[in-house]
Amino acid sequence: MSADVINKAFLATEEEFLSVVRKQWQIKPQLASVGSCCLTGIICSGVLYVANAGDSRAVLARTDEATKEIKAIQLSSEHNASFESVREELRSMHPDDPQIVVMKHQVWRVKGLIQISRSIGDAYLKKAEFNKPPLLPKFRLSEPFKKPILKAEPAVTVQKLEPGDQFLIFASDGLWEHMNNQEAVNIVQSCPRNGVARRLIKTALCEAAKKREMRYSDLQKIEKGVRRHFHDDITVIVLFLDSQLIARDTWSSPMVSVRGGGYSGSGLIGLGLVDG
């Protein structure tokens, strides 16, 4: 296991999806405008690898040795044009394009179309062959481009887990719009493990309802297609850590038990989150 292996896996996934877009181009051209953020975590022999392409986020809960309080540690950075560092990266990659990032409707967007700078898919901003008819005009750029505007390569962080590491939260940006890292960690710490991911989702939805001056029960009644105007889709994974298990080189028992919740033999644990 290595950062290079994970990077190759992301790129292989990207190529497979682009091949689907290419095969379906004439009958389903809108596949070229479909994309997803991708956040992946892998634990191998006590080492945690986090790979991110897009604006999902991974947070680690760690016990502070001095205060014994559980602190939130952000493990990934978002590839979103709202961050100055991302805009600077895009400008350095496209020095001859003054319109590589544009403020539109009070939001920074790549080419005025999309907020994220890395993703799986979004072929219309990676391959010029897909940025033309029969793709819908709203996705087509007026000027042709010679190199990909978006990237599929993830940013990978690697660190050894410590005995005080308690759990990991993997979540799409729909969660982080309504709570910060420490708030999410506090909720997980204070609630029973069973259903805690759903608790995070409900807390975020209650906050979304509050911002719109409505009740959570009223928000639930809104049709899914219309709900996107009130809040983004939310996906959450919480992984509790066992320091004795993750330090082993091999396991004979099942590696991980997963119970999913979303709105809308080698000593290795893997989990991933896509948000498209």
Rank of each mutant, 00 (worst) to 15 (best):
I222C: 01
D64T: 10
R140G: 06
I149G: 04
A72T: 06
D218Y: 03
V59Q: 05
R57Y: 01
K111Q: 11
L175W: 07
A155R: 07
L241E: 03
P148C: 04
V158M: 09
Y49P: 09
T235K: 12
K160Y: 00
V86K: 02
N131M: 04
Q99H: 14
A155Y: 04
T157S: 14
S243Q: 13
G225T: 12
G174A: 11
R87V: 09
C37T: 15
G164W: 07
K210T: 04
F167P: 01
P192N: 10
F145D: 01
L136S: 14
L273K: 13
L60F: 10
D249E: 15
S36T: 15
G121E: 05
M1Q: 07
P29L: 10
A58F: 07
I269D: 02
E15F: 01
I27R: 12
Q189T: 05
A184Y: 01
V107Y: 02
Q26G: 14
S264H: 06
F167V: 04
I6H: 13
D218M: 06
L48W: 05
P134H: 05
P163G: 03
Y216H: 07
D4C: 03
Q166G: 12
I73V: 12
A3I: 00
K68Q: 13
S253Q: 14
L141W: 13
A53D: 06
I246W: 07
I120E: 02
A155C: 05
E84K: 15
D275R: 08
V21Q: 01
A204G: 11
Q115T: 15
P148S: 05
N180D: 14
F130P: 00
A128H: 06
P95H: 05
G54A: 01
L241H: 08
L75S: 11
V47C: 08
K28S: 09
F240M: 06
A184Q: 03
R87C: 10
V238N: 13
I149P: 00
A61R: 13
D64I: 07
A152D: 08
R228L: 11
K126D: 02
K224S: 12
T250K: 13
P134R: 10
K28M: 08
A197T: 07
S117P: 01
E78F: 02
F145K: 01
